[in-house]
Design a protein around this nucleic acid. Structure first.
Length: 303
DNA sequence: CATAGATCCTGTATGC
DNA sequence: TGCATACAGGATCTAT
């Protein structure tokens, strides 16, 4: 279940261990893992071998490794999405193959290899062109269609609030729309909505500017905290992203907590099916429609 | 164009 | 014990 925080932890680990290394060999063990690379496994390998990885970047849940040839500025990148069960492992070459090993990368040095392991094969890798991101940087073409994520310094907060309030869709649906803001998945959406005391089924157009602004702040806060907890493994050689960022077990207030007391008010957390997914919320803290609490008059005017 | 639902995958857990 | 079903869920495709 990697969402933005888990992907960021992986990005940092890959940056730490793979930057500066030259690809010597690529082995695709399952074609579905590179289905987004339309030219196929041969071309995939050909476009990687001999290039040098010059960093690791991320937008939302996508991450990519810019590739340089002969010291030139990178024009392509290895793009990855972990899907639901993907892992990128930096591991000694003589370690036994994982059961769901899909792609293996060996390097020109004696260091550890990079492995893409993915049980459910929703994730995938591709080599893609880098294109202008409209702000002096570059993103791979397959990433250009999603919005910046809330932790991006160039994230347009004003536009986000405007967009959310222009949509009649449920707010949770909007949070999960990667073109509005990227990086938020089912878990952190529920956690941010719980923190903001907003029911996920409320229409975006029914929220005040203040409510959307606070919700965005809660999205940022919960993700930042998750990164901080997962980040303790940056120095480990074994970069694991199996959904568990360290945040899962201890800190989740709502997600997966059906029947458990709300940490704020003690009311049992409820689970409903929503968008063909589970949604967890506190029925007292997150009423469907805001009941007459404090900022009622101000909210009415703000509309 | 925007929106909503179906679909892809496989391992685990649960029900009968 | 065995079999069937539900569930996890991000992105993409299709239909409205």
């Amino acid at each position: 279940m990697p969402e933005l925080p888990e992907v960021e932890v992986v990005r940092a680990g890959v940056h730490r261990w793979i930057s500066g290394r030259t690809v010597a060999d690529v082995e695709v063990l399952h074609p579905r893992a590179i289905r987004r690379h339309l030219e196929g496994p041969r071309d995939f390998a050909d476009r990687l071998i001999g290039t040098t990885v010059v960093g690791a970047s991320r937008r939302g849940k996508y991450l990519w490794l810019p590739l340089s040839t002969d010291g030139e500025a990178p024009e392509t990148a290895l793009v990855g999405h972990l899907g639901m069960s993907g892992q990128l492992l930096v591991i000694a070459s003589d370690a036994p193959d994982e059961r769901h090993l899909r792609v293996r990368f060996r390097f020109a040095d004696d260091g550890p290899e990079l492995r893409f392991v993915d049980q459910r094969t929703f994730g995938g890798l591709a080599v893609a062109e880098l294109v202008d991101d409209g702000a002096g940087g570059h993103v791979p073409a397959p990433v250009a269609h999603i919005g910046r994520d809330p932790l991006d310094p160039a994230f347009d907060e004003v536009a986000f609030v405007r967009t959310v309030r222009s949509k009649p869709s449920e707010i949770k649906r909007i949070l999960l729309d990667q073109t509005v803001a990227s990086g938020v998945g089912n878990i952190y959406a529920d956690e941010a909505l719980w923190r903001a005391k907003v029911h996920g089924a409320r229409p975006g157009s029914g929220l005040t500017r203040g409510a959307v602004t606070r919700l965005l702040a809660d999205v940022r806060e919960v993700m930042s905290q998750a990164i901080a907890e997962g980040g303790t493994s940056f120095d480990a050689l074994y970069v694991n992203v199996n959904g568990e960022s360290g945040y899962f077990d201890r800190r989740l207030a709502a997600y997966g907590q059906e029947g458990q007391p709300c940490p704020r008010c003690g009311t049992p957390i409820r689970r409903i099916t929503f968008m063909n997914r589970s949604s967890f919320f506190c029925p007292r803290c997150q009423p469907w429609r805001p009941h007459g609490r404090a900022p009622q008059h101000a909210a009415a005017r703000e509309r």
